[in-house]
C-alpha cells in the first residue's frame, strides 16, 4: 500500500539531511548529501528539491503531503529568511516557503533548525516530558531551541532563541557576527578548533573535530586547555539560560556532541559560578538521543502538525 509521506529537511552549511516520516509513524532512513556550493541560493534550492525526491523514492514511493525544513540564520514562522546565514551564500531576505511550494507543489513549513530539533527531542527524544525545554546545539555555530509546555518559543518577531551570540567574554574573541566575545566563538565546533589550533604548535596542521576529540581522549595538553576554555564559556551561556528561563531540562546536541566531546560534566561543574542554585539544581542535563536525525525529524513533525491543522 502506498504511504503518505512528509519529508523533513535539515539544511546545514556542509550537508543537507532528509528523513521521510509516514502518517503511520514509520520512518525512512536518514539521508545526507553535501550542500551545493558555488551556485548561490538557487543551487541550494536545487539541492533541497533533489534530496526531497530522493528521500521519497528511498522510502518506497507514495504520496508527498508536505515538506518541513530547518534552516540556519534568522528565519520566522512564515519561513521567510530575514537575515543572513554566515555559512550559506546568498541565503538572505526571501520567502523560502514560496520558493519550495512552487518547486514541490506541496505545502512547506519550517523555521530555525535548532527550534525544529527541539520539537523532535521533545516528542521523541531526550526532552520528553519537559515543562521548559532548552536545546543547545553545538555545530558549525551555536543554535538554541526553546519549548514551553511543548510549544516552540519564537519571541515577538519570530526570531527568538538565538543563543549563539550571547556575549560570554566581554571584549573577547571576534565572532563572525562582528561582536566580540560571543559564545559561538568559543563553544561551537569552529570555536573549539580555533582554540585548539591556538594551543598547538604552528606545525600541527589543520585539525578536524574528530582529531580534536581523539586528542582530548588521549589527554593531549593543547586539546585539554582548549576544551576547558570552551566549557567555561558554555557554562556561562548555560548559566544565563538557567537564570532567565529556569528550564527543567537542557539538551545538548549537534556535531560536537556527535563527535563524543565531553560536555555535561565539565559544564555543570562550573555552573555554581554562573547560575542560581534553585535554577541549576532543579534542571536535568542530557545529550541528544536523536543525533543527526533530530533536525529533519523535527521539521517533518512540524510539517505533519501544520498539515493536520489545515
Amino acid at each position: 500500500m502506498n504511504e503518505t509521506w512528509t519529508i523533513g529537511i535539515d539544511l546545514g552549511g556542509t550537508n543537507i539531511k532528509a528523513i521521510a516520516l509516514a502518517a503511520s509513524g514509520k520512518r525512512g532512513e536518514l539521508l545526507s548529501v553535501p550542500t551545493p556550493s558555488g551556485g548561490g541560493s538557487k543551487g541550494i534550492i536545487d539541492g533541497i528539491v533533489a534530496v526531497v525526491r530522493q528521500a521519497l523514492e528511498e522510502a518506497g514511493g507514495g504520496r508527498l503531503d508536505a515538506v518541513g525544513i530547518g534552516t540556519p540564520g534568522l528565519v520566522d514562522d512564515a519561513l521567510t529568511i530575514r537575515g543572513t546565514a554566515v555559512n550559506l551564500p546568498e541565503w538572505e531576505r526571501f520567502s523560502l516557503k514560496t520558493v519550495l511550494e512552487d518547486r514541490l507543489s506541496v505545502p512547506a513549513w519550517g523555521g530555525n533548525d535548532v527550534g525544529l530539533a527541539a520539537i523532535a527531542e521533545y516528542e521523541l527524544g531526550a526532552g520528553s516530558g519537559a515543562e521548559v525545554l532548552v536545546c543547545i546545539w553545538l555545530g558549525t555555530g551555536i543554535g538554541g531551541g526553546i519549548l514551553l509546555n511543548g510549544t516552540p518559543f519564537r519571541g515577538h518577531n519570530g526570531i527568538g532563541g538565538e543563543i549563539g551570540h550571547v556575549v560570554v567574554e566581554p571584549g573577547g574573541k571576534l565572532c563572525n557576527c562582528g561582536q566580540s566575545g560571543c559564545v559561538e566563538a568559543y563553544g561551537s565546533a569552529n570555536g573549539m578548533l580555533a582554540l585548539y589550533r591556538k594551543e598547538q604548535s604552528p606545525a600541527a596542521g589543520t585539525p578536524t573535530l574528530p582529531d580534536f576529540a581523539a586528542a582530548l581522549r588521549a589527554g593531549e595538553s593543547a586539546a585539554v586547555a582548549a576544551h576547558e576554555v570552551a566549557c567555561t564559556m558554555l557554562s556561562r551561556l548555560t548559566g544565563s539560560v538557567l537564570n532567565v528561563f529556569a528550564p527543567d531540562r537542557i539538551v545538548f546536541g549537534g556535531g560536537v556532541v556527535q563527535a563524543g566531546i565531553p560536555l555535561i560534566e565539565p559544564i555543570t561543574t562550573r555552573l555554581p559560578e554562573y547560575a542560581l542554585p534553585a535554577t541549576r539544581n532543579q534542571c536535568t542535563f542530557a545529550l541528544s538521543t536523536l543525533g543527526g536525525s533530530a533536525g529533519p525529524l523535527g521539521a517533518a513533525l512540524l510539517a505533519r502538525r501544520k498539515a493536520t491543522e489545515r
Binding site: 519537559a130 515543562e131 521548559v132 548559566g239 544565563s240 537564570n243 532567565v244 528561563f245 529556569a246 528550564p247 527543567d248 554562573y274 547560575a275 542560581l276 534553585a278 535554577t279 532543579q282 534542571c283
Partner: peptide, 10 residues
C-alpha cells in the same frame, strides 16, 4: 520557569 525562579540575573 519550571520552578518559579526564571528572571534571575548574573
Amino acid at each position: 520557569g519550571a520552578h518559579h525562579s526564571a528572571g534571575e540575573f548574573r
